[in-house]
Amino acid sequence: MELLEFARGPALQSAMVIFVAGVLWRIIGILALPFISIPSRARKGVLPEGEVKGWFEGIWRRMWPHKSFIRQALFSTINGHVYHIGLFVVVFLFAPHIAFIKDLTGLSWASLPSNLVNAVGVVTAASLIAALIHRLTNPVQRLISTFNDYFSWFVTLAPVLTGLLAVSHLGARYETLLAIHLLSIALLLIWFPFGKLMHAFLFVVSRGATGARMKHRGAQI
């Protein structure tokens, strides 16, 4: 059980410390850069509040592609939704995970049946694998992808797979599987702030800024 103790103890602890420090480092390192604003007059009828609205519209609007792009973006969008929702369900609606969060923050909420989460986990893993295949076979993505993209994919899939192995007791003793699962989460937490997984936070600013800019001009968000 020593590996499990290490995983539940020092590994997770240091990973969380790195996660918190790294996320703040990155976010503040960006947000504290000078704000270059161009104080042009907004399109008639767009008030400053309107631009705030544009900010949120930008965040919301980009959840789904515009009609003109639907055909080209269909796979990426649907597959993306599948594994993001899947990850959300698995991470936040699985009772043992909620217990973890509750222990950490005191907050808790209702969980989904474990078998259902299990199934979602399988779908999520499949969807992530499909995403990798797409990345490898699509010349555009191949060209623009870097180590960051592949590694981020790996650290996301790893907890899902190891979690599935843990619940199904496949491949090794449960405590070893659980320890590996927790170690894979530690890896995810450690990598998170430094790689592209930070998009989970940054999309708020990038979509928002464009939303506000376009709203200011009265243009399509």
């Binding site: 000078p34 704000f35 800024a209």
Partner: peptide, 26 residues
């Protein structure tokens, strides 16, 4: 040229490749 907004843009690309689909040149 890098202010807060451009910086966020530089930081948040997920390399989905969709932008190519919108560009006439690609």
């Amino acid at each position: 040229d890098f202010g807060l907004t451009a910086a966020t843009y530089m930081e948040s690309c997920v390399k989905c490749g969709l932008c190519a689909q919108a560009c006439q040149f690609y």
